[in-house]
């Protein structure tokens, strides 16, 4: 009787210890994953990698996601970069760059903006909000103006 109870006790103890180990591992796994930073290491969406340096030809543009909204990066004919929110101030359509006009153009109602974001023609009531553009290594970083 004494023997069986002792072996039972050892069994329970080893069961307890191994389940506890599994439990501990289960607890530590999320902690470990949490500690390792995610691929986007910035919490605030104040800046974003918009493109690679050689991605855009002069006189072309690209729409990219900036936080939860689209933004547009434009490379002027002289190679200079400009970036704006791509949300048209009229009805929130996404604007695009028109090579033939050398203007930002909204397909929805033909709103046009110049390379400073100001309205040239069409229904948009306000200019597009401009962003800062910086080149860091081979990346083009677009950030909100402070």
């Amino acid at each position: 009787m004494k023997e069986t109870s002792k072996s039972r006790r050892t069994f329970l103890l080893s069961g307890l210890l191994s389940s506890l180990t599994a439990f501990g591992a289960m607890m530590l796994y999320p902690v470990w994953r949490f500690i390792m930073p995610p691929k986007v290491p910035e919490s605030t969406q104040n800046s974003v990698k918009a493109a690679k340096v050689n991605e855009l030809e002069p006189n072309s543009g690209k729409v990219f996601p900036f936080g939860s909204k689209p933004a547009i990066l434009i490379r002027l004919g002289n190679g200079e970069y400009r970036a704006f929110t791509a949300v048209c101030t009229h009805l929130q359509c996404t604007v695009q760059y028109r090579k033939d006009f050398k203007l930002i153009w909204c397909a929805c109602h033909n709103g046009r903006f110049d390379m400073n974001g100001n309205v040239v023609s069409g229904p948009p009531p306000l200019p597009l909000e401009p962003f800062e553009v910086a080149i860091s290594g081979s990346d083009i970083i677009v950030s909100k103006r402070a």
Partner: peptide, 9 residues
């Protein structure tokens, strides 16, 4: 963002 705004456009 892009998919939704595409459809809204």
């Amino acid at each position: 963002a892009l998919n939704l705004s595409k459809s809204k456009d």
